[in-house]
């Protein structure tokens, strides 16, 4: 069983770059497989944008840019993997994502997993007018085309692609990434409404190397995972090739309870576990949290 953690809550602690570096190095030393990094490019002054969906990230959130932060950490670590969780793909220009992901993969010696999502914040999407096109409502279609383009650029030395949003003729990335292609995992849903529409589940089954659901084990989740697997089979893929990483919450849970939680998600079908906490209020607390969690990991 592989274990990951994240720096999501660090956005609320203010400026502490040294603490972030220490957390990631500690996670590496403790044997975590990966750390997840979130992505927002522009902060939104939430009270002036009544229309956007509830977001924990606003203009006050202290968000390090994800590709440059991972590059910075790559040279200070040697084993731990970096996962974007998730990169909001449609608001970025596709070829630049391809190039920067390839570069991080090279700088880290093949330690990148690109978790991607379609995003939910229309204001941020519109602020980024130099993206690969389309409007907010079309971002799902753009997203699927982007995934196709990314994989071609990461595996071929001469790429020609004409789609609705891309017109690429005899172009390439040099150097190519270490992983050809870099794994693309799909994130979806929210903790308060973790089961996405069928369209999204089918997309995961057709396209994803892995997925990052927010659901907890249960009947609804079991049906949803079944839909992903059915779509994979329909697309001629082996459902087992889609890695599933599920989250467990460490707040107030004893070691024994956490071991039970992990067994439950494993029995449900998760290949990897992502440990997170809601209540911690400093980087120091997070470092203590992952240190204590080490004992739980040792049970697997």
């Amino acid at each position: 069983m592989k274990f990951g953690t994240n720096i999501y809550k660090f956005t609320q602690y203010g400026e502490d770059l040294a603490g972030t570096v220490e957390f990631v190095k500690t996670a590496e030393a403790l044997g975590f497989n990966h750390v997840r990094f979130l992505d927002h490019v522009v902060g939104i002054i939430a009270e002036r944008h009544s229309g956007i969906m509830q977001t924990p990230y606003t203009s006050k959130s202290y968000i390090h840019e994800v590709f440059t932060l991972m590059a910075f950490l790559a040279g200070q670590t040697s084993r731990i993997c970096f996962m974007t969780g998730v990169l909001i793909l449609p608001q970025r220009p596709t070829l630049l994502v391809a190039k920067q992901a390839a570069e991080v993969d090279i700088l880290s010696g093949g330690r990148l997993t690109l978790g991607v999502g379609v995003g939910y914040n229309a204001i941020e999407f519109r602020a980024m007018t130099g993206n690969s096109g389309g409007n907010f409502a079309e971002r799902g279609t753009l997203f699927e085309e982007q995934i196709e383009v990314l994989r071609r650029l990461w595996t071929k030395e001469d790429v020609t692609f004409k789609g609705r949003f891309h017109d690429i003729q005899d172009a390439c990335l040099a150097p190519l990434p270490v992983q050809r292609p870099i794994p693309i995992w799909l994130g979806f849903g929210r903790r308060i409404s973790p089961i996405p529409p069928d369209k999204v589940l089918r997309r995961v089954g057709r396209l994803a190397d892995g997925c990052l659901p927010q659901w907890l084990p249960g009947e609804e989740a079991r049906i949803a995972l079944g839909k992903i697997h059915a779509a994979a089979r329909e697309a001629g893929r082996n459902p087992d090739d889609i890695t599933v990483e599920m989250s467990i919450y460490g707040d107030g849970r004893s070691k024994a309870e956490l071991i039970d939680d992990i067994k439950r998600v494993r029995d449900f079908g998760a290949h990897q576990v992502h440990i997170r906490w809601d209540d911690l209020s400093s980087i120091r607390d997070n470092i203590e949290g992952i240190r204590r969690f080490r004992e739980v990991m040792d049970a697997f």
Binding site: E103, C172, A174, P175
Partner: peptide, 19 residues
């Protein structure tokens, strides 16, 4: 050209910042 081995500028600089 396509034969040039070009590291992406921002991520490379971020990496070197630590070194």
């Amino acid at each position: 050209t396509n034969k040039s081995y070009i590291h992406e500028a921002f991520t490379l600089i971020a990496y070197l910042a630590a070194l």
